[in-house]
Simulated scan of single mutants.
Amino acid sequence: MTRTHLHTGHDHQHGAGSQEEILDLDAEVLAEHLRAIIEWLPLATGPSHIVDVGCGTGAGTFALLDRFPDARVTAVDTSPEHLRRLREKACARDMDDRVHIVQADLDDADWPDLGTPDLVWASASMHHMADPDRVIRNIHDLLAPGGLFTVVELAGVPRFLPADAPEDRPGLEERCHAATDHLHAEHLPHRGADWGPMLTAAGFALEGERTITVHIEGSRNEAIGRYALSALQRIRGAAAQALSPEDLAALDRLLDTGSPHSILRRGDLAVRTERTVWAARRT
């Protein structure tokens, strides 16, 4: 979904990567964990029609298509740019005949015709909904009887730096996140929610809940440096007002790709976060 991501006028000034770039890097770096979540789903048979709610640039869409070769996916998002990139990927993978793209805001009262899927997938999208309870009820009614609704949520923006980094301002990354917490609380009140009670209140039977701890060393994937750079670039504008001048200067040294202090030159990066998944059945 494209709604309330950290995005300010500072982004262009400091070379922030696009939201699409961050979504693509997230998909690349966390692909193994995404596959593990899909393998865990309580599915007796492979689904034939999947709706990907808030599909972004297609991380879930293509992971699901790879896992279920007989399935087709209806990919729904508010962002035409996300959907354009998803369509390009589908064509490049020769999967365009298996992907139906729908631009829609599911907070609107009138939903497009999404068919009768047997699996609805919502990864990092439900917390963007203005009225998630109504969206969950609509998804319940949309699903085929016995169909599965999967909600996947990330525990905020991943951490990348050790606690004692950078050397001149230890703990900088945590202070950056603390500086943006008020924005998340104001604009994304459902981030970090327990989706289980909301799912059961809408008539779903909760069949499973699992939290996956993510810790990927930077040495395992060269994309982690670019992922860290893009994530911190986008945090920088939102956090700048609340950071001390010393912290802001240290952050800018990390974000300066031409500097010897650049985050791209560090050998101690890792992706640290958690993903929680809820699997709920329409009975």
Rank of each mutant, 00 (worst) to 15 (best):
T211L: 06
G218R: 00
V135T: 02
E209V: 12
A223R: 04
D164Y: 11
L232V: 03
G146I: 01
N138Y: 08
P80Y: 08
A249M: 02
I136F: 11
A130N: 13
D133E: 10
G192V: 02
I136K: 01
L106R: 00
N221C: 10
D168I: 08
E153Q: 07
D113R: 09
L251P: 06
V214K: 01
E28Q: 12
W111C: 05
A270S: 09
E246T: 12
R87S: 14
R275P: 11
A270R: 04
V271Q: 03
G267N: 13
T61Q: 05
A279S: 09
I139S: 02
L199P: 02
R98A: 06
T57G: 01
L255E: 06
I212W: 11
I136P: 06
E32L: 05
F68V: 00
P47E: 01
D194Y: 12
L188W: 04
P145K: 05
L64K: 00
P197G: 04
E88T: 15
G46K: 11
C55T: 02
V102P: 06
V73M: 03
S79H: 07
E209Y: 12
L183Y: 14
C176V: 08
V152M: 09
P170K: 06
G156M: 01
T273N: 01
L25H: 07
A223G: 07
P245C: 01
E39P: 13
S262W: 09
R220L: 05
L254D: 05
R84D: 14
S244N: 10
